[in-house]
């Protein structure tokens, strides 16, 4: 299988995830606490709220930086070409910031394979990464205030390589516990085998 080829997830026609905390949301399957979605090839999508969180970040950045610069330009120069151009850029940036996270979400997936955690991501620049279990040195679970409100966490796998790409963002908290436990168990088993037990 092409490691970069994505099977379209079955959520294509799904409505946008609710803005409310997902721990109390209900998905199309009628289960409470929506978790990741299977893409059909064993890969799991992130929690749907990931798109919303990325969207909040990118739109806020566009509005604060672009809007701020535009406001200052209008205040200083009045209605001139440069402020108008900045305003146009801000509008385009904001629209892009609204649209792109959903694409990013659709292309972000992970799978706990037989011997490694596999990740796929990227809309234009696509990356597929694998982190073998027995190379895992440490697993961090991080949660910012907005993530805490949305009931998701970021799982960070560390190996001896500083450049390893083992970060899974915006996993549902309860699912992250399961993923973390499975990874730890897989790493422990790998090490036991390594040690000859």
């Amino acid at each position: 299988m092409d490691p970069l080829t994505r099977t379209d997830p079955p959520h294509e026609d799904h409505p946008e995830p609710a803005a409310s905390p997902v721990s109390s949301a209900t998905d199309d399957r009628g289960t409470t606490g929506t978790t990741a979605t299977d893409t059909g090839d064993g890969f799991q999508l992130l929690h749907p709220v990931a798109a919303t969180l990325w969207r909040i970040g990118s739109v806020a950045t566009a509005l604060i930086v672009g809007g701020g610069a535009t406001g200052i330009a209008f205040a200083v120069a009045g209605v001139e070409v440069v402020p108008l151009c900045l305003a146009a850029v801000t509008v385009v940036w904001t629209v892009f910031g609204w649209w792109f996270p959903q694409q990013r979400y659709r292309h972000w997936s992970y799978r706990i394979g037989d011997a490694a955690l596999e990740l796929r991501r990227g809309v234009w620049f696509r990356t597929s990464a694998a982190v073998p279990f027995h190379r895992i040195q440490q697993i961090d679970v991080e949660q910012g205030p907005i993530q805490r409100r949305s009931g998701v966490v970021t799982l960070r796998l560390r190996t001896a390589a500083a450049m390893s790409e083992g970060t899974v963002p915006h996993l549902a908290s309860d699912e992250a516990d399961g993923v973390r436990a499975r990874l730890l168990e897989a790493a422990r088993v790998s090490r036991l085998i390594d040690d000859g037990h």
Partner: peptide, 23 residues
């Protein structure tokens, strides 16, 4: 330690890939 495969839009036109091996 780990590895990754990446592909830019330009590489995709020719089905080429960069394979990075992390140590």
């Amino acid at each position: 330690q780990s590895w990754s495969v990446s592909q830019s839009p330009f590489q995709r036109r020719h089905d080429l890939h960069d394979v990075a091996i992390h140590l």
